[in-house]
Design a protein around this nucleic acid. Structure first.
Length: 417
RNA sequence: GGAGAGGUGGCCGAGUGGCCGAAGGCGCUCGCCUGCUAAGCGAGUAGGGGGUUACAAGCUCCCUCGAGGGUUCAAAUCCCUCCCUCUCCGCCA
């Protein structure tokens, strides 16, 4: 959610941002609605003030004076309730629309509306040149007995996979490796709840926009998170930090669940896009002046990890029109997938500025003792997708997989064979 | 799942219909005092939304005592629903 002050004082800024995002919205109409709801609220509050004023005198009055005062207060009370209900209805009407407005796009976010418009800003490594027939992770893993999509489908349906043997161990090694590295950088490791309340998803901006991507658990009115960003952000809801507490950095690990609605027929092979995967996520709460730097910092952490895995990649500045609702700016790392012969997203880091903190009420006391909203920044460290990228890039002629040097202390083996 | 207790300001903790957004204590901030990293004295110290204004300060109005409803001229105080925490029992990785 963005600042309502933007609507009142810089509506042209809002309109410009919406246009860059490819969203059409009648800003003038919103302004009118905002003015109306405030006018009605002022009216209501004036009535209430008078009613309370009279109410206070009642205790000390007697006889007719008292009767008259009670009657007058009663009238005002009734009218106040009507007006208040009106004001509340207008507020609800306004907020219903306001919460759907995406964050203001950062001026340095790339122009454009879809993936095609993403701007490459870095490229590292070169796609491996294999002198044998390249196989994708499904063929490799199945042959080695470490990936079993068929049986996963048997028990759960499409878009599920199963890791076994050394590949299962490799994933756990990667998770621990990433966690250790981030802990060294001052990120606090967290294993958060991954069943959360609606409020947590609303507060992080996934609701209402992406409701159809989220699994729900009817029994308890809870939802399965698609990323630990949700609990990591929401855990500090309604809190006020000291300026000295910032930046506050977490590395969360969780299994993630995504409906993948609207992706029928897309990336259907193997473990590339599945309903369930594991992820280590970085999440920072920072001073508003520092969020750009923090965004760069998280990107740097991501690049370090991907390089250590010896995966060729490029970094793209995601087009404004392709940003999620909460992001002002986003960088994706796209790594080379030999099985697909192209670069595909394996990490994503977003500066969500105050979009989430405003909804979640996460603030800090600044130098002047005033409460201000923090900025939040998130970024992927490691996911199951990085795992299959490793498998494909480090395949050998004999179908075995060589473990990247950096992970060997964690796996205890050098090769999956 | 069953039984009980409870949710008040940064923390502890009073407060069963009006003068309570809230005693007192602790903590914190500022000032004073004090020759010794202490004690004492005074003042201040919740959040949110409006109005005024320079998106300042100040002033002012409304809301908030777990959340949401209700009763009443008036609710932290009475009623209802929900949420959460704690203790005990049951079940369980």
């Amino acid at each position: 959610m963005i600042d309502v002050g933007i609507l009142r004082e810089q509506p042209e800024l809002l309109a410009a941002s919406l246009e860059r995002r490819g969203e059409s919205l009648d800003v003038a109409e919103l302004i009118e609605l905002d003015e109306k709801r405030r006018a009605v609220r002022i009216e209501a509050e004036e009535m209430r003030a008078r009613q309370r004023d009279i109410g206070k005198s009642i205790a000390s009055l007697t006889g007719d004076d008292k009767t008259t005062a009670i009657e007058e207060a009663g009238r005002l009370s009734a009218r106040y309730k009507e007006r208040l209900a009106e004001a509340d209805a207008l507020d609800a009407q306004f907020m219903e629309r306001w919460v759907t407005i995406p964050n203001l796009a950062d001026e340095t976010a790339a122009d454009g509306f879809d993936e095609e418009d993403n701007v490459e800003i870095t490229r590292w490594g070169t796609p491996p040149a294999f002198d044998f027939e390249v196989r994708d992770h499904v063929d490799l893993g199945t042959a080695l007995g470490v990936i079993d999509v068929e049986r996963a489908t048997k028990i759960s349906g499409s878009r599920f996979g199963m890791l076994k043997g050394k590949l299962a161990l490799l994933e756990m090694a990667m998770v621990r490796w990433a966690m250790d590295g981030l802990a060294d950088y001052g990120f606090t490791p967290v294993l958060p709840p991954i069943l959360v309340r609606e409020q947590a998803l609303f507060g992080t901006g996934f609701f209402p926009a992406d409701r159809d991507q989220v699994y729900s658990v009817k029994e308890d009115d809870l939802y399965l998170v698609g990323t630990s960003e949700v609990p990591l952000a929401a855990m500090h809801g309604d809190e006020i930090f000291d300026a000295a507490d910032l930046p506050l950095r977490y590395a969360g690990f969780s299994t993630c669940f995504r409906v993948e609605a609207g992706t029928y027929g897309k990336d259907t092979r193997g473990l590339f896009r599945v309903h369930q995967f594991d992820k280590v996520e970085m999440f920072s709460f920072v001073h508003p002046d520092r969020s750009r730097d923090e965004h760069d910092l998280l990107l740097a952490r991501e690049e370090e990890l991907v390089r250590a895995l010896e995966l060729p990649y490029r970094v793209v500045n995601v087009a404004a029109g392709d940003l999620g609702a909460s992001a002002a700016k986003k960088y994706d790392i796209e790594a080379w997938f030999p099985g697909q012969e192209r670069y595909r997203e394996i990490t994503s880091t977003s500066n969500t500025t105050d979009y989430q903190s405003r909804r979640l009420k996460i603030r800090f006391k600044d130098e002047d003792g005033k409460n201000r909203l923090v900025h939040t920044v998130n970024g992927t460290a490691i996911t199951g997708r990085a795992l299959i990228c490793v498998v494909e890039n480090h395949q050998q002629a004999d179908g075995t997989i060589v473990i990247p040097e950096a992970l060997r202390p964690y796996t205890g083996f050098d090769v999956i064979d």
